[in-house]
């Protein structure tokens, strides 16, 4: 087609569970540095798409291409190594480790020092400094000694973002990053993500229920319904799309 290839290309992805078609021929492209939202009503296939994109299971057909390299069918730990970070819908951290250790272990994995069985974890000063740097980015540096399990929900979500950021990904995929947060926490988190994306040229792909956030920060939006893409465009285009209005958004975007 001649169009420049995006950082992340989803091409004709199909995924079925039993008789249920969760994804049917999903195709779209995410450009470098773009902030991209995936929206759709419950059961539209957002989580399935996320799981296919991050290697939890392979698509039945179609492919996912990241940085020109096919990543569908590759196990998650290899996909992560190619420069993708991921956070989960349900807070997914290491609860009975300290905030510091949560990020430190991510950095060990990133620098491949996880393989060192005899060195002392404490004797990695560069990793310690980097850990605090990452925690500072999400404003958790002061809480680094606390056990992750006692953090507030919002702090835990941000810790998870910190864990994902530790591997310096080029693409960060966030499954409902503000789920369960207060309005104030949500706004803070959104600002944080926007800032990081701008500073580091990080590409963001996220799903979200809160339409204020979706239309507030995303540059492009793809809308899924019953496993199929029904619209793909800028927030303005999506707002104007009659099919989207009818199918999903209803009154919400007229506000």
């Amino acid at each position: 087609m001649g169009a420049p290839m995006g950082l992340l290309e989803i091409r004709g992805v199909v995924k079925s569970f039993g008789g249920l078609r969760a994804l049917q021929d999903v195709t779209f492209s995410v450009g470098q540095g773009e902030i991209r939202a995936i929206i759709g009503p419950n059961g539209a296939g957002k989580s399935t798409l996320f799981n296919v994109m991050t290697g939890l299971f392979p698509p039945d057909s179609g492919e996912v291409v990241f940085g020109g390299e096919r990543i569908s069918g590759v196990p998650p730990h290899r996909i992560i190594r190619k420069g993708i970070g991921r956070s989960f819908q349900i807070t997914n951290i290491f609860p009975r480790m300290t905030v510091f250790e949560n990020v430190q272990v991510a950095l060990f994995a990133h620098h491949r020092s996880s393989r060192d069985p005899l060195g002392m974890a404490r004797r990695y000063p560069s990793v310690a400094a980097e850990t605090l740097d990452v925690l500072r980015q999400v404003d958790l540096a002061e809480k680094h000694e606390l056990s992750a399990s006692i953090l507030s929900h919002g702090d835990q979500k941000r810790l998870e973002i910190a864990i994902s950021l530790a591997s310096r990904p080029r693409l960060l995929m966030l499954d409902e990053p503000t789920a369960g947060m207060s309005r104030f926490e949500s706004r803070e988190t959104v600002e944080l993500l926007r800032g990081i994306s701008r500073e580091q040229g990080l590409t963001l792909v996220f799903t979200e229920h809160d339409m204020d956030i979706v239309f507030g920060i995303s540059e492009k939006i793809v809308v899924l319904q019953q496993g199929a893409v029904i619209a793909d465009g800028t927030p303005a285009e999506i707002k104007a799309n009659p099919q989207v209005r009818k199918a999903y958004l209803g009154e919400e975007i007229q506000a």
Partner: peptide, 15 residues
């Protein structure tokens, strides 16, 4: 330890 706490998250660290 990270695997003990949450093996899915550990996998998504690239482990």
């Amino acid at each position: 330890k990270a695997i003990r706490e949450n093996n899915q998250r550990a996998e998504y660290l690239g482990v």
